[in-house]
């Protein structure tokens, strides 16, 4: 599978996919997209990079073990709901802040943080599984 063309394109492709995944994640509240699909795109990017460049390369590139990313995702998703307790509304109630930004305004919200958590969980879990499967015997003994 490691053809020259694929190996050359894969890093750029993975980079574009990662950026695109963030785009999909953030537009998700109003357009098709969201944390789950964004996470899947990001995980595919990592999987593709892994097939092209080898798992060792990917692991050193992302620095953090993928499952830690997933764990962090669960944590921030869970914590995003705690903020609502301060406002005396039930756990996980959406809180919104609209910050003026030029002519427009930027919406910051707890559901967005929650969605980022979903994104990280999907990204972390799927890429952890994909990378573990991509690892060949040689990767273990180098």
């Amino acid at each position: 599978m490691r053809t020259v063309i694929f190996r050359t394109i894969a890093p750029s492709l993975a980079a574009i996919m990662l950026v695109f995944s963030v785009f999909v994640l953030l537009r998700g509240h109003n357009e098709p997209g969201g944390g789950f699909i964004g996470g899947l795109i990001a995980a595919s990017a990592i999987a593709i990079y892994g097939i092209a460049a080898g798992v060792t390369e990917v692991r050193s590139a992302i620095r953090v073990p993928p499952l830690n990313i997933a764990g962090f995702g669960v944590v921030i998703a869970g914590f995003s709901g705690l903020l609502s307790l301060g406002e005396h509304v039930p756990y996980l109630s959406g809180l919104w802040a609209f910050i003026p930004f030029g002519n427009s305004e930027v919406a910051i919200s707890t559901p967005m943080v929650f969605d980022i958590g979903v994104y990280l969980v999907v990204l972390g879990t799927v890429s952890a599984v994909a990378l573990a499967l991509e690892e060949t015997e040689e990767d273990h003994h180098d």
Partner: peptide
């Protein structure tokens, strides 16, 4: 009330956020 046009996403992250929290824990 949820400031989102994408109903699917609004359901996932807001209306039924607790379910999603459970689901992502299961995924992990």
């Amino acid at each position: 009330i949820a400031h989102g046009h994408n109903i699917v996403n609004v359901i996932l992250v807001d209306y039924r956020g607790l379910d999603t929290l459970g689901e992502i824990s299961v995924v992990m």
